[in-house]
Design a binder for these strands. Structure first.
Length: 472
DNA sequence: TTAGGGTTAG
């Protein structure tokens, strides 16, 4: 018994995040011929049915994070002559931005060809896409072509400036906006955070909370706002991170914000980075739903606070609870093994990455293993391991070996690695100082002094180290 | 033509 296209369309809209249902509906739509364009249909609504169904399908696949499939479906749509309309392109543009940057310009051409570039939803999608591709000039051009950009379009442009490191322009636009909503404020807070201006992000959040729109409850911070500001707070240097973070946590509780996987993970990260492990664990244990990022935040917090045994326990617990570790999990776990000199365990975990979990080790993981072997004094093994790498080691990998040479007084090897590092990282002040110290240790005073002089000539200054006890 | 655009965690 065939299904009516209207029925299948309603089903598609009802199960937007269930892959099985979407695949089944897609199959039915194909087998029952609903995706074929019918230009001779009796009614206009029927004539547009295939377009409508394609639009709902592409949106559904995009919602599942299947950007590539979304784009393939769009090519099928064109091949079957189902005419795309202004509702088609926002999903397609978003899919291209995340998975196929080279399709950006051809899509722009398609949009012009179908006469829908005038549509504000399509224009806003392009602002987002060009921002994502780092083409800020094109994003800005598209935005400036909009006759009366609404708050959503302005927010897309705010985010575009933030993504491309131009917070000055973001602030200018923010000030000029006739209307601002929670996304406008959050985009600026997030922009500051993404550009490393953590203190500005926190100050902007405070400005938001004191603003008349928030006071009058016209604008209310939401989950994204709290996650952005907490993330900046966790990275605040110069003290005050824990104090500010606790204040913001308090704001969130008073504003009855729903504690979700996102907010919970941001809080664990904050408390972990500020050394408040008990609070991190409290948040973690209270969370009903945990995702891989939640486990990673907790494992990284334990690793950063020297709790190697608990890192490994948590890693086991994660697997028992059915959560699959990812590449970030392994960075945290391998770091803990290196710090705890758990060589055998670290190597076993490194091997398991590919063999048990199908995760190809990245440069960071190789760096962790070099650190693991190097800290344990196994310099020969560390050197051999670097030689066996499938790609050329970068500064972080050689830096780990160099660090181990310093710890274990391996002057000759340290000198050789240090010279190589200077070629790779000519602006890294610590490398000059450390290499100079190694030469001084060998009583090669001329070479040590030359390195210091080279630093001065290159205009590289050593940043004075400082330590800080942040209490509240 | 019922739909479509902006912010969030390691």
């Amino acid at each position: 018994m065939p299904h009516s296209p209207e029925f299948l369309l309603r089903l598609l809209q009802r199960f937007p995040r269930r892959p099985n249902q979407i695949n089944q509906i897609h199959s039915l739509l194909i087998s029952e011929g609903h995706l074929l364009y019918n230009p001779n249909a009796a009614y206009t609504s029927l004539k547009w049915m295939s377009t409508l169904l394609y639009n709902a399908l592409t949106r559904a696949y995009l919602g599942l994070g299947q950007a590539h499939k979304t784009l393939v479906l769009f090519t099928h749509m064109l091949a079957h002559q189902a005419p795309p309309n202004s509702h088609t392109f926002p999903s397609i543009i978003k899919a291209a931005a995340s998975s196929s940057p080279s399709l950006g310009k051809p899509l722009h051409t398609q949009v012009i060809k179908h006469g829908v570039l005038i549509d504000p939803f399509v224009q806003t999608s392009f602002v987002g896409m060009y921002a994502q591709l780092g083409e800020i000039f094109d994003a800005r051009k598209m935005f400036e072509e909009m006759s009366q950009p609404c708050v959503v379009a302005c927010n897309a442009m705010l985010d575009a400036f933030g993504k491309n490191g131009d917070m000055g322009s973001a602030l200018l636009l923010f000030e000029r906006m006739p209307e601002r909503d929670v996304v406008s404020w959050t985009s600026v807070i997030n922009g500051f955070g993404k550009n490393g201006c953590f203190s500005d992000a926190v100050k902007f959040f405070e400005k938001m909370m004191a603003h008349e729109d928030v006071m009058a409850c016209l604008v209310k911070p939401n989950e994204a706002t709290y996650v952005s500001v907490l993330s900046s707070c966790a990275n605040l240097d110069g003290g005050g991170a824990l104090c500010r973070g606790k204040q913001i946590h308090g704001y969130a509780i008073r504003n009855e914000i729903e504690f979700t996987v996102f907010t919970g993970t941001a809080l664990i990260d904050l408390y972990g980075k500020t050394g408040c492990l008990r609070s991190a664990l409290n948040v973690f244990n209270q969370m009903v739903f945990k995702e891989v990022c939640t486990w990673n935040a907790m494992i990284s917090s334990l690793a950063a606070n020297g709790r190697e045994a608990e890192v490994l326990d948590m890693f086991e617990k994660m697997k028992v609870e059915g959560q699959r570790p990812n590449e970030v999990t392994f960075v945290a776990v391998l770091t803990a093994c290196a710090r705890g000199k758990l060589v055998e365990m670290g190597l076993k975990l490194f091997q398991s990455m590919l063999h048990e979990f199908g995760i190809a080790p990245l440069m960071e993981h190789y760096g962790c293993v070099v650190d693991l072997l190097g800290r344990a004094g196994l310099l020969k093994e560390a050197t051999g391991f670097i030689r066996s790498m499938p790609f050329e080691p970068d500064g972080s990998v050689l830096g780990a070996l160099f660090g181990a040479c310093k710890i274990h007084g391996a002057i000759e090897l340290g000198n050789a690695v240090g010279e190589r590092l200077l070629e790779l990282q000519p602006r890294h002040c610590g490398r000059y100082v450390a290499l100079s110290n190694i030469n001084a240790g060998m009583e090669r005073w001329d070479h040590a002094a030359d390195l210091r002089k080279a630093m001065v000539v290159a205009g590289i200054q050593k940043i004075p180290a400082y330590s800080l006890i942040d209490c509240m």
